[in-house]
């Protein structure tokens, strides 16, 4: 179990490993004060800090690394994708690459300003924010869930 060739590892094993991995990453990003994993760190939120304390290189390298790591895992397990996920045909109501492109673009267009306004995204508020018991992060999480659940309801359920 949990070999590199396996497609899926237990969510509990991966969750614990992600937690253990993010602890030094958070400490490294100035004792939890910085966003760790998002584009908010790339640009620096004007509301929380002048810019990332660790410089812009770290978050950009992190995002590139995430792509490489996922590529490594998918290649080893033979689970690389060559077509969009079938979920898009279902929730968008038609097997339309155009609809997926529009929805994806809109999603990115809303998500990045959202992360800048809230000073972090799901990973920041949901991990480092919760652990620090930050009231603002709980508020942001409630709003993230509300937005996600309402949008989820508006999409097709198949």
């Amino acid at each position: 179990m949990c070999t590199i060739r396996e497609r899926a590892w237990s969510p509990y094993v991966t969750g614990i490993l992600i937690g253990l991995l993010l602890i030094p990453a958070m400490l490294f990003a100035d004792a939890l004060s910085q966003s760790v994993t998002t584009l908010a760190t790339v640009t620096g939120s004007p509301f929380t800090a002048a810019g990332p304390a660790t410089g812009y290189g770290w978050p950009v390298a992190l995002l590139v690394g995430i792509g490489l790591g996922a590529s490594l895992s998918a290649t080893a397990a033979g689970s690389r994708h060559s077509a969009p996920s079938p979920i898009w045909t279902r929730v968008l109501g038609a097997p339309s690459p155009k609809r997926r492109a529009v929805a994806g673009f809109a999603g990115g267009f809303l998500m990045v300003p959202g992360a800048l306004l809230a000073g972090g995204d799901l990973t920041d508020h949901g991990l480092s924010g919760v652990v620090q018991q930050s009231a603002g992060s709980f508020l942001a999480l409630a709003a993230i869930m509300a937005g996600g659940l309402v949008t989820g309801r508006l999409l097709h359920r198949l």
Binding site: A103, G107, G108, G114, A143, G148, V150, T151
Partner: peptide, 13 residues
């Protein structure tokens, strides 16, 4: 920001 993230994440996947 949270509402935008939640909506955006769901649309973007």
């Amino acid at each position: 920001g949270g509402l935008l993230i939640g909506t955006g994440m769901t649309l973007a996947g």
